[in-house]
């Protein structure tokens, strides 16, 4: 049901839904829950060197397409692979079994898989920040007006990331490649997440 899907999102501050609330009200509560995180993504984007030089349309288009991916990276640590639990932003921790009963299936498993691979890379705060910037500018290009500018920005950020990653772990040449391989996984996760959202529209 609609309520089940809402309950299962880690960005939902109110997983215990009031049965008296209408779907519209539940949706509004959910929106209020994730709005601060989205605003943080926008603030983060503003600090990416070169991002603010893109046209307003292209900034918004990248953020629309990439916010989920950025949040997935940012909140990957909420997924405890060892304990098989997820901590929601409300602070409540749920077991994998409970989450599956809430309706989280393949998407949840893919999120766990991603989180495990990302944490295995043991990125420094600086690396994680730069990687997150790369994630945002590497998102779907649909609707971008000046693709060349976005590609230039992406190239610059990837070069900076490669330099940083190589400097931090000079003996591990595959580390950068392993990091870049997370990008298509994020795209897949984004698509899976979008499908969930589309099946859940409230007029």
């Amino acid at each position: 049901s609609r309520k089940d899907i809402l309950l299962a999102c880690p960005m939902n501050m109110h997983p215990q839904t009031d049965p008296d609330k209408t779907p519209q009200e539940i949706w509004e509560d959910f929106s209020l829950s994730f709005t601060p995180a989205v605003r943080e993504v926008v603030q983060f984007a503003k600090h990416i060197p070169g991002f603010s030089s893109l046209s307003q349309n292209d900034q918004i288009t990248l953020l629309k397409a990439g916010t989920f991916e950025v949040l997935m990276v940012r909140f990957a640590s909420l997924f405890n692979v060892k304990e098989k639990t997820v901590t929601f932003i409300s602070g409540t921790t749920y077991s994998l079994e409970t989450l599956k009963n809430m309706g989280m299936g393949t998407l949840l498993e893919t999120m766990f898989d991603f989180s495990e691979k990302l944490s295995a890379l043991e990125l420094s705060a600086e690396e994680l920040s730069l990687f997150t910037a790369v994630v945002l500018v590497s998102t779907d290009r649909y609707g971008i007006q000046n693709v060349k500018s976005v590609e230039m920005l992406q190239d610059n950020l990837i070069k900076a990331l490669r330099t940083l990653v190589s400097k931090n772990a000079p003996g591990d040449v595959s580390r950068f490649t392993k990091l870049l391989l997370r990008l298509p996984e994020l795209r897949t996760l984004n698509n899976m997440h979008s499908e969930k959202l589309l099946s859940f529209r409230i007029d």
Binding site: S31, V38, R39, V42, Q43, K64, L197
Partner: peptide, 27 residues
């Protein structure tokens, strides 16, 4: 429509956050 971001009202949140805090203060 078939835009998940619009479905969430994401564009509105992004646009306001991007344009600064003036609109947010007015809310």
């Amino acid at each position: 429509f078939s835009d998940p971001a619009s479905n969430l009202g994401l564009e509105d949140i992004i646009r306001k956050a991007l344009m600064g805090t003036v609109e947010e203060r007015q809310e």
